[in-house]
Design a protein around this nucleic acid. Structure first.
Lengths: 253, 253
DNA sequence: ATGTGTGAAGTACTTCACAGCC
DNA sequence: GGCTGTGAAGTACTTCACACAT
């Protein structure tokens, strides 16, 4: 691929597609499971099945990292685990702060997947003074006033926002001002950040809405298949559950 | 799936791209906020800014739904809210069950965004007998034995899995067998489902790993840039590039 | 024989740019 | 004049299919 005309010259062949990056953690998880079962090698076919993708995609993805497989044999599990971990930056320790220790923040703090892969919860921060000192997942919650100090002292570059929507942007601004350059946002808001700061969002209600869209379509098709002779007009109603026909109101914070 | 055909024949012009569907909830949220402020109309430019996308994309997205705007004027907020809600299937009521009432399950049960947009938590289900009867978010937790009955009685077609990884597939199988056709999976596992069942996954650790990848790259470039002309402060000299920051050069220090 | 690595072909999505309507 | 709606152009990602290393 000599094209390379896209964004930048790129330091090297460091042009891993975003879609590939997003799948690397998936491969890594599957490989880790194999590693734990002491499986020495896997084929692209097997690994792809375990990760829920197709094998051509997987091979193409790996080709961006280098030629880590052996033709006629497959991939060495341990070696791949290492290479992917390194590529993702998981061979180093990433201190993370979680801001907003409500239900969700607590769930995140307790989530094993964090600690197990290079991430370390450096601090839990909440604006409620009543929370201060209270341990969650074995870590005492600190007051939001300490935010800047905590970030600096721990060299935190990744922040997780689990506050109500209204608090998210101000918290984000403070995180960024204090030096955080990557943010994982669970609050249902669009965050504005300066150039050079990465934001990823996880939005529970959006995922559900996407499911509802497909679900509705299924119901529609099913009905069309049943009646056979009555689709064709404008949007038909999907019978089955009581249609409320209301326009929802938004939530608070 | 050997047949060359794409997913579906598409009943009509009902060929809304998946990427567009994924953004509709975003637009809907922005529109709802405008609606609450009694803003009567918006331009694609304004709405796009509020939703965090560019205006051409937004107009293209809306063009798949129909021509709901007025040239020279913009879009009628209320009307769009209704149209998008309808397209997403949010004008009907979707009963949802949440399985696995740990930290995360409880967070989900309490999450306002669910109830506010056509989703109704029909039941909370957990395998731990000690949880049974305990109210979470005002809803008493029911034992997993009741799962099939609950799904049937409530006509549930959307299930949320918030169990530990090991329990996810069995729970998924039972949900599907009982009639659920859409699943939102929070457990860090690849779920296998029969054709016709939709699964979306939300994976906290994957998101963090993607951030770590970019974070690492920033650090690397920064080090490389250090040798060159050390710019002062958060400013990138690299003209412009993609929509999202991809060529950063900032330093917390 | 077997399974990787990869050009080339195919598909999906984004952005441009401007005609057309208000 | 302003702003939508959309063909056309551009870009990103996926899948195919097969040469080639083991």
């Amino acid at each position: 691929m000599a094209t390379g005309r896209t964004h930048r010259p790129a330091t090297r062949s460091r042009g891993i597609p975003e879609a590939t990056v997003a799948r690397l953690p998936l491969y890594l998880r599957a490989l880790t499971a194999l590693s734990e079962r002491s499986v020495p090698t896997v084929s692209s076919e097997e690994l792809a099945a375990a990760a829920g993708v197709n094998s051509a995609k997987l091979r193409k993805d790996f080709s961006y990292l280098g030629s880590y497989g052996t033709r006629g044999v497959g991939y060495d599990v341990e070696y791949l685990v290492y290479q992917i971990s390194r590529e993702l930056g998981l061979t180093q320790d990433w201190p993370v702060v979680i801001v907003g220790i409500g239900n969700l923040g607590a769930a995140l703090a307790n989530y094993g997947g964090f600690a197990s892969r290079g991430f370390r919860v450096a601090a839990l921060i909440d604006a409620d003074p009543a929370m201060a000192g209270k341990p969650v997942a074995g870590i005492p919650v600190q007051h939001a006033d300490e935010l800047e100090k905590i970030i600096e002292d721990n060299g935190v570059s990744i922040g997780v926002i689990a506050t109500p929507a209204g608090a998210a942007q101000p918290v984000c601004d403070r995180l960024v001002a204090a030096g955080v350059t990557s943010i994982l946002n669970f609050a249902p808001t669009v965050l504005t950040v300066p150039d050079g700061v990465d934001v990823r969002k996880v939005d529970l209600s959006i995922e559900l809405q996407i499911l509802a869209f497909h679900e509705q379509r299924k119901a529609g098709e099913e009905a069309a298949a049943e009646g056979a002779a009555q689709a064709a007009g404008p949007r038909s109603e999907t019978a089955d559950k009581g249609p409320d026909g209301d326009v929802p109101a938004v939530m608070p914070a």
